[in-house]
């Protein structure tokens, strides 16, 4: 299953090549594209020609990168110091296993056993000064034969089905978006479709900044994996999205106010096709849509997200129906756009 392979692939910001190669290979094998562009910072921009020669340039975007840890120093005793790349809650790190570097060397993030901790230590989260990765080597030389400064470390989570109609795995933000776009790419429309698999979203929406410039679209949709905060002790109004209630549309976040017209058209399409949708509550976070909207003279954009619990951690959880409904919503919107001759 492609979603499984995407979820288990390792690609932190700036080091997306494994994910990129996986997507590229899949596209080539299934003959899904008419042109593939790789740019200087690693975006993969896939063009699918329209059946008509004109029509608006429609851009779909999802980011390939996931949050990761970067090795910042190899200590004399062979332990690895690291820094987060993208937003990670440091409290979740301790006691996890990781793969380090391109060769996926196994390691663990250790901690002092509870027996030896003072009571106040147990209540204090571990910071970057206390945390390290242990590869099981005894010296700097040994460690440096396996990894180098600048390598990334990733959670080792494997993808699987889970509970009641759910998936669990790592990096759903935003491999689920990539997976949705791969499904959409299987269809051909009257207008030219540009599907951008972007890089470095997690550290400042950087891939989309240049992908938008290159494509210069007339309209863009960003597909995301967004936080679902429907967990105990979170009040209803603080739950940004809920699992199982359908794809989430953004009315505003810290990077973008999506085009009101475009959002209302997408809602209409959902209504016509009986696809459940929810409006994302809260305005935290940012997406590639912010940068694409600000491209050149401006682009109408909207954001459609698959709700995922526990994102930016080792295991996120999402609902199968939400995933499938997101694919349906995007496809049906594009069909509607086509029926209207590409005019909103």
């Amino acid at each position: 299953m492609l979603l499984k392979r995407l979820s288990e692939a390792c690609g932190g910001p700036g080091k997306e090549s494994v994910v990129r190669d996986l997507i590229k290979q899949e596209i080539t094998e299934q003959n899904l594209a008419d042109e593939i562009i790789c740019d200087a910072i690693g975006n993969l921009i896939v063009k699918k020609d329209g059946t008509k020669s004109d029509g608006p340039k429609v851009m779909l975007a999802a980011h390939m990168d996931e949050v990761a840890l970067m090795i910042s120093n190899v200590e004399k005793n062979g332990l690895l110091k690291f820094k987060p790349v993208g937003g990670i809650d440091l409290r979740i790190l301790v006691g996890k296993s990781v793969y380090v570097g391109a060769n996926k060397v196994s390691g663990v993030i250790g901690a002092k056993p509870i027996h030896m901790q003072r009571p106040e230590e147990r209540n204090t989260p571990l910071g970057l000064n206390e945390l390290y990765i242990d590869l099981g080597v005894r010296s700097q030389e040994e460690a440096e034969r396996l990894v180098k400064v600048g390598d990334y470390a990733y959670f080792t989570t494997s993808f699987s089905e889970f509970g009641d109609n759910l998936y669990k795995g790592k990096a759903f933000d935003d491999r689920v978006g990539c997976a949705v776009l791969m499904e959409v790419l299987k269809e051909r429309y009257e207008f030219p479709l540009y599907v951008a698999f972007t890089v470095q979203e997690e550290i400042g929406l950087r891939g989309s900044t240049v992908a938008g410039y290159t494509v210069e679209p007339d309209l863009a949709l960003v597909i995301e994996g967004t936080a679902a905060n429907d967990i105990p002790d979170s009040k209803e109004h603080q739950q940004s999205t809920n699992l199982g209630k359908g794809p989430a549309l953004t009315m505003m976040d810290r990077s973008v106010i999506p085009n009101p017209r475009l959002v209302s058209e997408i809602l209409k399409v959902a209504d016509e096709h009986k696809i459940p949708v929810q409006i994302r509550r809260g305005t935290q976070g940012g997406t590639d849509a912010g940068k694409i909207q600000g491209t050149k003279g401006g682009v109408p954009v909207a954001v459609i997200s698959v709700p995922c619990r526990y994102i930016h951690g080792p295991v996120s959880v999402m609902n199968k129906n939400d995933y499938n409904n997101t694919i349906e919503l995007v496809k049906n919107f594009l069909k509607t756009l086509e029926q209207r001759g590409g005019v909103l």
């Binding site: 209803e236 109004h237 009315m251 505003m252 106010i257 509550r281 809260g282 305005t283």
Partner: peptide
């Protein structure tokens, strides 16, 4: 203001614009 939630009693929650 942007409305983020409407509860059962009809009160609205919001975020800042």
């Amino acid at each position: 203001f942007v409305i983020t939630h409407i509860d059962d009693k009809g009160f609205l929650r919001f975020s800042n614009v």
